[in-house]
Nucleic acid binder design. Structure first.
Length: 482
RNA sequence: GGUCUCGUAGUAUAACGGUUAGUACAUCGGGUUUUCAUCCCGACAACGCGGGUUCGACUCCCGCCGAGAUCGCCA
């Protein structure tokens, strides 16, 4: 049978780190099995609906390259893929249950139910609505909730991650199937949809584990075959032991995109948070993840989100793209991350800058801070120069002399041989002639050129900057010291 | 309170019942003729506790402790 998985978010806001993984794993499994990955929007709670949230979800999945085979925008045989547009289907299933005597309209006012609940809580006994089941139930009609009529029994099932599970009658209850407003609850809608859409693996967070017996009762009552159940452990917040949520400041996935994180790195990191293939490999392409993914190696315990490791992985991916696919491939990703002044420079020039700076980027947005001096003359900051840990040992006149000697020597290098190699040998000669330590001489020239806390190797920086700009900047500093 | 789940270094994880308990991030130290970074080398650092089974237990069993989930006309 073809493997069909789905990601079924509610359009109540952005997708964050704590919940994308329940899109990633189903996607990986579906692709590995050459099956289908469905996107379904669970928008049955009109009160929590957020305008634009569906687009945010689509945007997030597309960025991560988790393309869905059926769902919004692409359609599919079971369209529509918005639950709010599938009311008739749920009602049809509901009627089946009513006819079978497994569902009833509940006239009990909410306040009364609340009263029952309170009684139980006060007596510290579990609240089960079926103990308060109304005896006189009207015919079901819009405006009145429909409840499932539980017939509690022992259930056994297998969770692909958690293993063999069992539960007794004490957790089965008369859950609401259709709300007063006519929309189905999640508990009912997802079962109907998964069946209609042929979903073979229901993958979702562990928080649904406790309600599984109720779902099993529904499958049975509707005569549906159970899909495979896969409980995904939570991603925990950096502090505390709670699952990561918006209240912990969980950033949206797209925020990381805007901060210069690559989708490859995000996918890689998240996939490996709570899953591994048993080898010591750390960096995986999407194709490798698809190939190696397996349900039985998903962790059973929660995993803590560690942004530092994500950023490390992002640095690895930046280097990997540059080294394996070349500067052009990486450059394509950098659009929008350059400092504003870079706009005035050619693509070729920016690529040169990128190829000497790429290996110190953790995120693409580091470009803004790290490359400004390549595009505009830096502001002279003599304090930075004079207080440098190597340069502060030298007097101002020493610095001036050193700078002048350097300018004279570098000026002797004509435009035609102003390249990394000859610059390096010239710099080496300069070291010999002045008798200075590299730390002193090179720091001086480096700072005079960039006034940045760090920069690439000096010869490379000068090569990219060019002869004119390099000499002009050195001269400007020489004048300022006087 | 009921039910369920989880428990290897700070973090993520590996380990047929037999290993000096491995790897990565982080941290600290060192190296690659400047800085920052990359890269390389090294250090620190863990089986929640207590019983049992066994020649031998991180691994199997029981108890305890700790953490989490759930008990909505939210998903």
């Amino acid at each position: 049978m073809e493997t069909v998985t789905r990601f079924a978010p509610s359009p109540t806001g952005y997708i964050h780190i704590g919940n994308v993984r329940s899109a990633i794993y189903p996607y990986l499994l579906a692709k590995q099995q050459h099956g289908k990955f469905i996107l379904r929007i669970e928008d049955t709670d009109r009160g929590r609906y957020v305008e634009g949230a569906t687009e945010l979800i689509e945007d997030t999945l597309r960025w991560l390259t988790l393309d869905w085979d059926e769902g919004p925008l692409v359609g599919g045989p079971q369209a529509p893929y918005f639950q709010s547009e599938r009311k008739e289907i749920y009602h049809a299933y509901a009627k089946r249950l009513i006819e079978a005597g497994r569902a009833y309209a509940d006239p009990t006012p909410p306040e009364q139910i609340e009263q029952y609940r309170k009684e139980c809580n006060d007596q510290k006994i579990p609240f089960l609505y079926r103990n308060y089941r109304p005896t006189d139930t009207p015919e079901w009609h819009p405006g009145i909730p429909l409840r499932f009529k539980a017939e509690p029994q022992n259930y056994q099932w297998r969770d692909e991650v958690m293993g063999d599970m069992h539960a007794g009658p004490e957790v089965q209850d008369d859950i609401i199937l259709i709300k007063k407003d006519g929309y189905p609850t999640y508990n009912f809608a997802h079962i109907v949809d998964d069946a209609e859409m042929g979903v073979t693996h229901v993958m979702r967070g562990v928080e649904y584990l406790s309600s599984t017996p109720n779902y099993l009762a529904l499958y049975d009552a509707l005569g549906l075959t159970r899909p495979k159940l896969v409980s995904l452990p939570h991603i925990l917040a950096p502090q505390g032991n709670k699952k990561l949520g918006k209240r912990d400041g969980a950033k949206s996935v797209t925020e990381y995109r805007d901060d210069g994180v690559l989708p490859e790195a995000m996918l890689n990191y998240l996939a490996c948070l709570g899953w591994n293939d048993g080898t010591e490999q750390e960096i995986y392409t999407k194709e490798e993840l698809i190939e190696r993914f397996s349900l039985d190696r998903i962790q059973t315990s929660g995993a803590r989100y560690d942004e530092t490791k994500l950023l490390w992985m992002n640095g690895q991916w930046i280097r990997r793209i540059f080294n394996e696919r070349g500067v052009d491939a990486l450059f394509e990703r950098t659009e929008g991350f350059w400092p504003d002044v870079a706009d005035e420079h050619s693509v070729e020039y920016r690529k040169k800058v990128l190829s000497i700076i790429y290996d110190r980027l953790k995120t693409l947005s580091d470009l803004r801070e790290m490359t400004a001096y390549f595009f505009a003359d830096p502001e002279l900051d003599m304090n930075m120069l004079l207080n440098n840990k190597f340069l502060k040992k030298l007097s101002e006149s020493e610095l001036e002399n050193l700078l002048k000697t350097s300018i004279a020597k570098l000026s002797s290098l004509p435009e035609t041989t102003w390249n990394a190699d000859s610059l390096q040998s010239t710099l080496n000669q300069l070291l010999q002639e002045t008798g200075k330590k590299p730390a002193e001489l090179f720091s001086l020239i480096r700072l005079a050129l960039s006034f940045a806390p760090f920069s690439p190797a000096l010869n490379l920086t000068m090569e990219v900057l060019g002869r004119d700009a390099s000499l002009a900047r050195l001269n400007a500093v020489a004048r300022a010291i006087q």
